[in-house]
Design a protein around this nucleic acid. Structure first.
Length: 459
RNA sequence: GGCGGAGUGGCCGAGUGGUUCAGGCAAGGGCCUGCAAAGCCCUGUACACGGGUUCGAUUCCCGUCUCCGCCUCCA
């Protein structure tokens, strides 16, 4: 079965066929860099990272754009409140997002373009829209004429009569449902020159301008959180299609992370930030937790759930460590058909994880039965699956045996374990257990295997 | 008001018109172990409520209740 994805525009799961053979182009709405990233922000990025890895795994050359909105009302007001330049505020938080994405193992996008770097493209797009009668300038602002585009509302299922942009009722709008492409400059605010006067970008324009700039007038996948369906993506779609661009062929939307049943958002004060999370959980465990549920299902966050889910990851990790002990490196094998079928079915990560765990169980059983060849083969299969999911415990990225501190610790632990093995050989179990207790006390779990003791740092 | 999502066993979280099943975590029993740990095996009979369709519904249809999201910046 070939990859199928749920497209918000058509409201069904369709076969994904890229516009150009052998390549796939993705545009993902990134952050408005106004604050510190929380797990909700990262959840979406992780979903698209898994999709991207799956496309790459299937031999496609993926071009991925994740934008940075570095100019908007909130950035301006927050920076002003903090007494900092708006551009510094934006840059600071852009870095925080980059760090969060990277910490959780998101592959870097092909490019992360900033809105402020693409004013030229925005002006060109506005000009095209004005030339075609889909937009008009009024009092320094530029508006998109919603009624001029017949398909308006099709993406979000809104009827034109019911549409409310929510934008403040601007003076120059011919129709209250029209939305703002460009905001006329105000004193003290950053602005850029245009044929219609100085000003700054409206929210929606940047994505259309940047997506087509990097991916062409028609591209494969446009992703973002469900809250972006209306008005953001509806408006993007309207302005690009009205300008004559094919624009996105698939619209993907990921669901929320909620806390106590409510959407995580700064205004509710129920935000769990990434830096805060990383102090309490391993990044790979957090990643595992966030990508296991289906991307269109809401995740109800709780500390307990992350802790439990981490146990699941450790089970996989432990199997690979056991399988790797005493043999040459375990290579990355090929993914099972069931696993591929799961991901091909609208990125069915829950089923993919089920396949992963079934393989781990079989692998452990093989290990117990002393069937080293089979265990090794299954371990390679497990690595292949975790590699696609970006959680391969043996990868350079997540292996814990790297780093100077880890080496120093390892050396100490090995010394103690050697002493314990000596005591065990002499059947001095009191001494052996005392050493093990000492290690446990220090947060190190020890387990004996036919290939000798394995140790793990536990919290 | 308009649009949309969800209610599954102790918990998280999939899925399907019917026989054996998601998967994980936790729990109980067993095997293994010097003792553990890890692992393996076994056990739990769940699908908000009320109708309807059907030989048969958790799965389809209708209604009810509850929760959540978008329509204001938002991943």
């Amino acid at each position: 079965m070939a990859l199928h994805l749920f497209d918000t525009e058509t409201r069904d799961v369709r076969e994904f066929r890229p516009a150009r053979d052998g390549t796939a182009s993705m545009y993902v709405c990134g952050a408005t860099v106004q604050g510190i990233p929380h797990i909700g922000h990262v959840r979406g990025a992780l979903n698209y990272d898994v999709l991207r890895r799956w496309l790459v795994h299937n031999g496609l050359d993926v071009r991925m754009v994740r934008n940075v909105t570095d100019i908007d009302d909130k950035i301006l007001t927050k920076a002003a409140d903090a007494g900092r330049p708006w551009w510094e505020w934006a840059a600071t938080h852009e870095r925080a997002f980059e760090e969060a994405y990277d910490a959780l193992g998101c592959l870097p996008p092909s490019i992360a373009p900033r809105a402020t770097g693409h004013i030229t493209q925005m002006i060109e797009l506005m000009q095209r829209l004005i030339d075609k009668g889909h937009a008009y300038a009024a009092g320094g602002d530029v508006y998109f004429s919603v009624t001029s585009f017949p398909g308006y509302g099709a993406l979000s299922g809104q009827r034109l009569e019911e549409v409310q942009q929510g934008e403040s009722q601007a003076e120059g709008k011919r129709d209250p449902r029209d939305f703002t492409l460009w905001k006329g400059g105000k004193p003290g605010e950053p602005s850029w020159p245009t044929p219609w006067g100085h000003g700054r970008p409206g929210w929606h324009l940047e994505c259309s301008a940047m997506a087509t700039n990097y991916l062409g007038e028609e591209f494969d996948i446009h992703g973002g959180g469900v809250d972006l369906v209306f008005p953001h993506h509806e408006n993007e779609r309207a302005q690009s299609r009205a300008a004559g661009d094919g624009f996105a062929r698939f619209w993907l939307h990921n669901a929320w992370v909620t806390l106590s049943g409510e959407k995580m958002s700064k205004s509710l004060g129920n935000v769990v930030s990434i830096p805060q999370m990383l102090r309490r959980f391993r990044a790979v465990e957090l990643r595992y937790y966030l990508i296991q549920p289906h991307y269109r299902s809401t995740i109800e966050y709780s500390d307990e759930a992350v802790t439990e889910s981490a146990q699941g990851y450790r089970r996989v990790e432990q199997f690979l460590r056991r399988a790797a002990a005493g043999t040459d490196a375990v290579r990355i094998g090929t993914v099972p058909g069931e696993f591929a079928a799961a991901l091909d079915d609208d990125l069915g990560t829950p089923q993919a994880f089920a396949v992963l765990h079934n393989t781990v169980r079989d692998g452990n059983a093989a290990l117990d039965a002393g069937d080293a060849a089979k265990a090794r083969e299954l371990a390679e299969t497990v690595r292949a699956m975790t590699d696609v999911l970006g959680i391969d415990p043996l990868s350079q990225r997540w292996a814990e045996s790297s780093g100077v501190e880890a080496k120093a610790l390892g050396s100490l632990v090995e010394t103690l374990l050697a002493r314990r093995q000596q005591a065990r050989a002499e059947r001095d179990f009191a001494q052996a257990d005392a050493i093990r207790d000492q290690l446990v006390e220090a947060g190190i779990a020890v387990e004996d295997t036919p290939n000798g003791p394995l140790w793990t740092v536990r919290d």
